[in-house]
Amino acid sequence: MSRAPGDLTPTAGQTVGPFFHYALPYPGDSELVPPGRADAVRLHGVVRDGAGDPVPDALLEIWQADPSGAIAQEPGSLRRDGFTFTGWGRAATDATGHYSFSTVTPGATGPGQAPFVAVTVFARGLLNRLFTRAYLPGDLDGDTLLASVAEDRRHTLVAVADEQGYRFDIRLQGEGETVFLRHPRH
């Protein structure tokens, strides 16, 4: 028997493998809002491996609040209508390891909470998904999580402002390795 009755141990993850491209990406996956809309910003970056080389077969997902800090519970992420903000998106990296989302700037979800975009990373060669956060640049002094991270690694959790929005590079391993998160009960 694969799982004994009553066994509630979490199922193990496995790598997304090399062949997810024809299954998981879909038209409009990375466009939480249409690019070019007045409040649209770009969240983009490059995923790199331990040698500093770009990872062309990674998949990122983001999940975020809207600009007022509200958390969407609207369906429609897979068939976007261009008007409903669902808060979730998916983007595969291209041949240069680059990913790009069109989204809006998230607001704080509660008093004293710094706004961030929650990020999941999948890739060929990565045996289980990784979680991280992309904080927005600004005053982050009061944030509990950032305060718990060693100062020399804190910057890996903070996006950098650029002309269209935010740049958030991910380093899976090595110099400047991104801080990846583990949650209780995992």
Partner: peptide
């Protein structure tokens, strides 16, 4: 393929908040 693609630092404990 995992050799250069796994983090070498321990995963950092985070209490989920907000959208998480």
């Amino acid at each position: 393929s995992s050799l250069l693609r796994h983090p070498t630092k321990d995963l950092h404990h985070a209490d989920p908040e907000g959208v998480e």
